[in-house]
Each structure stands twice: as structure tokens, then as C-alpha cells.
Design a protein around this nucleic acid. Structure first.
Lengths: 205, 205
DNA sequence: CTAGAATTCAAACAAACGTTTGATAAGCGA
DNA sequence: TCGCTTATCAAACGTTTGTTTGAATTCTAG
């Protein structure tokens, strides 16, 4: 029951995250996961109950932090006066980029997100909607007041485009190298460009 | 050997496309495919050799047409003087949107594309790169002359963002309904917005 | 009509899958 | 140390996977 850093449970989560990212949920087997984690095959069902629960847990842990970061960043952006579109978009984009360059140095989570986003899997979509839909709604409300020329449907559609762009930009974040820039500089640069790109797209027409 | 419209081979391709789109390559079994296609299980291996070959064939058939359409549209855009950024982007975006609303009335192919794009699967990535990389290079060259303020690396990165946005917009194309608009009107509207969005993002900074 | 190729079919193959089991080991408050 | 919970383990469970087989059927050129 200890939240040890290298506990069986944590090693499974780490290995699962990496394998789900590279092979997908269906493509990564529990035997691969437990082998990479160097734990017994039965450990997954003991600690998580089932493969499906493991998938949910991998998503939940990361999303909890990402959404908390986004919510806090949004509050900061809304506290300023006047509220700037770039700040709101930054509150959406920067925490996601930060999550993609975390302690494990892996972009596994965002690649999982890209896959999940690409999947039409109804179970996952409703899981995301139920647990994290309110964050999306908060951002939509903030963006809506900043962009009164967009009706609600159009706004959601453009946010979807931005999310797609962001997700893929993040998924490629780890693979694209920029000459003579540290990871943090690179991240800042990427965030700046994404925010500008998204802001220009939202203001269009 | 006949290219009949409802041949066993074609029925397998159609069923595979739909199932790969909704369940992924690993998630869709040959038994599901052959059952939906109403053909014998062994027919896949007889006509395609293996599941992997079937996946490649599903991708290849659609991509051949998409890339031919894009190449032709690019030539048309470049024939005009002066060459407009919106026209080049339209040559990239419109054929993809058209492919997403084809005779079968399904968005299966673009959802497959979204999944493939999200996958880090090296086999598929090199398959796409080897067979269709030249089209991407042609567009990059055209965009490069229109956007001299972007260096090559930055340009490719932004094209990646656009492709991600486009892919997800297409994947959602079928699910989003717009009140009082036919499918063709809807597609035209979507294409216009995507082009504007992308052009604004590319011109930024 | 007939011979031979092309296709379809039910059945089975080994391998891999997620999951369960029961025994064993480790951890720990009393 | 005891007794009990928690955790790990090898082994096996029944399914499902992609693939192969060999016989039956359909098609087609001569």
C-alpha cells in the first residue's frame, strides 16, 4: 500500500504508459507490460483488476494533473485585465506541453492522448467527457467572450482543431530536434508558436 | 481476377476499412472483417496473403487517389499568377475533405489516417514516407517560396500542425452536424474555415 | 462437354491473449 | 514469535488471434 517510487504498481504504470503509447491499447499485451516492468504477469490483475482498469488508471493519473494545471492557469489568465486571448490559449497549451516533457523524459502520455483522441472508442470518449468535460467547458466559456464573432458550435469546432494541432505538435515534440536549443527553450518556443498559430486561427474571419 | 464491384476482394476491403477505422488495426480481427464482409475467414489470406498486407492495401488504394488529387490541385494552384497561399493550402486540404465524404458515405478512411498519424508505428510511417513523401515535399517547396520568413524546419513543423488539425477536423467531419446545410455546403464551409485557419497560422510572426 | 485453374469452404493449427488459481513469500501490528 | 494480511509467483485456464490445410465448388478457356 505504500506509494513507493519503484513499487510494482508504479513500474506497471510506467511500462504500460510507454507501451500503450507506441503500440496502442489493443496492441500492447499485458505480457509485454509486465515483462518490461519486470513484474509477474498476474500483478496487473492483482493491482488493477483488469487491463481495462489499467488503461483508465494510466489516463486518469496524468489527466488529473493536466486538468488541474490547466484550470489554475486559466484562473491566472482570467485574473488579468484585460483578458488576453493569447493568455487563455497559453493556459490550454502550456500545461499540456509541460506534461509531455515530464520527469520520465518521455512523450508517452501525449502520444497516448493523440491515440485516444484519434480513436472513436466510445468508452474512452465518454470517460474523458465525464471526468474532464468541465475543463473544456470553462475554456470554451472564456474563449467565447473573447471571440463574440464565433457562435458556440463554430467555437467548439475550432477548439477541436486546435486540440488536434496541439496534440500532434506535442506528439512530435520529442522527435523534432532544434539546433542549439535546450529542452526548456525548445518548449517555450514551441508553446509560443502554437499559441500564435492558434490565436491567428481563432481570430480569422 | 475481375475488378467486380462486389467481389470478395472488394467486400473485404470495405469491411476492413470500416473496422480498422473504428477499432484500429490491432483491435479489428480478421474474423470480424470476414464476418462483416460475409466471406470466408480464409479469404483474407487467399486474396491478400496476410493481415499486414491487407492493412497496406487499404491504405494504398485510398492514398493513391488522395495524393493524385492533391498533386493535380497543387499544379492548378501553381499555374495561377500570382500564386496564392490560400490556393496552395486548398490544394492540400480540399482533396482530403473530399476523400472523407466518398461514395460509401463514410469517414472511415480519414479516421484510419488519424489513427495511423497518431501511431508511432515505424512500419506504417516508413510506408507513408516512402510512397507519398514526394507529395509532401512538393507542397513544402510551394509553401516555402510563399513564406520566406519560415526556415525549412519551421515550415515542416507547421505543416505537421496543419496536418494534425486537418486530420482531426476530418475525423470529426462526419460527427458534427450543422443546421440547415447540405453535406456539400458543409464540406465547402469546413474547407474554407480550415484554409483560413491554416493560412492565418502560417502567416503568423 | 471437359480439363484445369481459380476460388470458396469448414476445420484445424500453433501461438498469444486476458484472466484465474493455489501455493509460497514477505510485511507487520500485537 | 505469532497470526494475519498483503504481495508475488509459476502454472494453467478457456478464448481468440492470424494462418494453413485439403477437399469441394465455381469459373473459364479450348
Amino acid at each position: 500500500m505504500n506509494p513507493e517510487l519503484f513499487s510494482t504498481k508504479q513500474r506497471i504504470l510506467d511500462a504500460a504508459e510507454a507501451l500503450f503509447a507506441s503500440h496502442g491499447f489493443a496492441g500492447a499485451s499485458l505480457r509485454q507490460v509486465t515483462s518490461n516492468a519486470q513484474v509477474n504477469l498476474a500483478a496487473v490483475n492483482y493491482h488493477f483488476g483488469s487491463k481495462e482498469n489499467l488503461i483508465n488508471e494510466v489516463l486518469r493519473l496524468r489527466l488529473d494533473k493536466l486538468n488541474a494545471d490547466r484550470t489554475q492557469a486559466l484562473l491566472s489568465a482570467l485574473a488579468k485585465s484585460p483578458v488576453q486571448l493569447e493568455d487563455v490559449l497559453g493556459a490550454w497549451i502550456r500545461p499540456a506541453l509541460a506534461a509531455s516533457a515530464n520527469e520520465k523524459g518521455s512523450t508517452a502520455f501525449v502520444r497516448i492522448l493523440a491515440r485516444t483522441y484519434a480513436e472513436q472508442n466510445e468508452r474512452l470518449r465518454s470517460f474523458l467527457h465525464d471526468n474532464y468535460g468541465h475543463v473544456l467547458r470553462d475554456f470554451a466559456a472564456a474563449l467565447g467572450t473573447l471571440l463574440p464573432h464565433l457562435d458556440k458550435q463554430e467555437l467548439y469546432w475550432r477548439m477541436d482543431i486546435i486540440t488536434g494541432a496541439l496534440t500532434f505538435a506535442m506528439a512530435d515534440f520529442g522527435t523534432i530536434k532544434r539546433r542549439g536549443a535546450s529542452t526548456e527553450q525548445h518548449r517555450e518556443l514551441t508553446a509560443d508558436h502554437l499559441v500564435r498559430f492558434a490565436a491567428a486561427g481563432l481570430r480569422a474571419e
